[in-house]
Amino acid sequence: MHGLINRSLQIFLQDNYGPAKWVEMSKKAGAPTEGFEAMLSYDTGVTHALLESAESVLGKPRAALLEDLGSFIVSHGNEERVRRLLRFGGEDFVGFLHSLEDLRDRAQLAVPDLDMPVIEVRDEPPTRFQLICSEPFPGTSQVLQGVLWAMADDYGALVLIDLVPPSKPGEAAEISIELLDSSHTEGRSFRLASGAG
């Protein structure tokens, strides 16, 4: 598992639940308590173990944890880099949804060994969209669901999101999105120039 993903999970757990809980969870999972290195690779077993211990220490189901992680990656952490990189995808929420088909290729342009899901976007006009999302890691689609909530918020769109997890491990998940209002709120501003928000 790429260090970027483990580190995102670490910062999410530390920021949301405090350093003491992080130490407890990481010790229990055999994960490095001092933290992951973003640019190194780790055994996938560590990520599984960390999620398991987070579930039991926090008493929170994994699906909810992963969804919160997805929203956290977009709206907190790392000077909003992920949010900005995602906003490059489109001018409005629909443009952004379409750009998800390029997400894997885009991410790998920057970090070639980052394992991202393959996402297929199906339009069901006028307001429904269906995302078929592969799961390189079980629960990937739940993280994506959190990302979608946060990005809808960012664009100011009002949406309903429904996730049907894969029936068998290794199969794709289906996320259906209903766009109720593409400009429900003003959303947050985005400028191409870096450092401009």
Binding site: N78, R81, R84, L85, F88, G90, E91, G95, R106, L109, A110, V111, F190, R191, L192, A193, S194, A196
Partner: peptide, 29 residues
């Protein structure tokens, strides 16, 4: 883009300028 405050809509979709900006930002990160 910063001098003229350009945005996504200022570039033709065939123009790879936005991809380049994306890469510059991802690369710096």
């Amino acid at each position: 883009v910063s001098t003229y405050d350009l945005n996504l809509g200022d570039f033709a979709p065939t123009d790879l300028a936005v991809e380049m900006l994306y890469l510059v930002e991802a690369k710096s990160a």
